[in-house]
């Protein structure tokens, strides 16, 4: 099989070039770690909040960059610190004031994003800014791949252990708060996982598009399946297939890899809208169909 793929021209870049294999490995880690988090973002109606959080990590990464240049550990730690600070502050304000969570998150992420851009512009070039905003999936080195793999592993383990908690927190949060003391753990634990995966995604796809590999496969999968377990699996499958196709598109058409991946995932979503059994068109075609009782 691998012999066939290596001689099949569309797939040959993965056999010829290590940077393509690294990019694919990075995307695989994101598809397995970040995409399930994206499913829960969608189910909690927090898709745009995820986008906001992806911007919120910018000043931390920028401070890391100012201190140590394009250093993976420094920018990772900075991103994690900024993301967690915004998540905690936004959550705290939303729970203790009349400001609702979406507004609270918007205020802190705007502050954070503008501070980040300001910090980068103080000492960076436009190339550096592009790296932070759009990532460098074709330039993932060993430490970056290890980081992506470690964060993905952590996410998968946390989701496997706390799946029921995360499901109930997304489905019926008041019920969870009534029957369990773990409700705050579910909320803040999820936010920590979100920040971890956004930081991982930021290394590969940049802050602007890290959330793309989370939300687009989740939204596409939602148009095909109606139960949360299969939804998680299908979303990750779509993310893997979309990443593979996006990387090949990027290579063969000489396009930037990050946007090519996200656009491929976006096309999958549009296709799902058109033909997915839970999409608007399929619902119209099957308007005469109904349950037996």
């Amino acid at each position: 099989m691998s012999e066939f793929l290596s001689t099949w021209p569309p797939f040959s870049p993965f056999f010829e070039f290590a940077f393509m294999r690294r990019a694919l490995a990075g995307c695989l880690a994101l598809s397995l770690g970040a995409t399930p988090i994206g499913v829960f973002l969608m189910l909690r109606r927090m898709s745009l909040a995820g986008d906001a959080m992806s911007h919120a990590i910018l000043p931390g990464a920028a401070i890391g960059y100012l201190v140590a240049g394009l250093s993976l550990p420094a920018m990772t730690l900075g991103g994690l610190a900024a993301g967690l600070a915004v998540a905690l502050l936004a959550g705290g304000v939303a729970r203790n004031t009349v400001i609702r969570e979406d507004t609270s998150l918007a205020t802190f992420y705007l502050l954070s994003l503008s501070a980040g851009v300001l910090l980068i512009s103080l000492r960076g070039s436009s190339v550096d800014l592009l790296h932070v905003l759009f990532g460098s999936v074709l330039a993932l080195d060993d430490p970056a791949l290890l980081l992506l793999g470690a964060f993905a592993s952590l996410s998968i383990i946390a989701l496997a252990i706390g799946l029921r908690l995360f499901v109930l927190e997304a489905c019926d949060p008041s019920f969870l708060a009534r029957i369990s003391r773990l409700s705050p753990l579910a909320h803040y634990g999820f936010m920590v996982l979100l920040v971890l995966n956004l930081v991982a995604g930021f290394h590969a796809l940049g802050t602007l598009m890290a959330v793309g590999i989370m939300i687009l496969p989740a939204a596409a999968a939602r148009l095909w399946v109606g139960n949360v377990g299969p939804l998680l699996l299908l979303a990750s499958g779509i993310a893997i297939a979309g990443s593979l196709a996006g990387l090949l598109l990027s290579y063969h058409a000489d396009l930037p890899a990050g946007p090519a991946i996200v656009l491929t995932l976006g096309a999958t979503y549009l296709l799902s809208l058109a033909v997915g059994p839970l999409g608007p068109l399929a619902s119209r075609w099957r308007s005469g169909w109904h349950f037996e009782r």
Partner: peptide, 8 residues
């Protein structure tokens, strides 16, 4: 607070 659109 049940989300009736939730896939469960």
């Amino acid at each position: 607070t049940l989300d009736q659109t939730f896939p469960i």
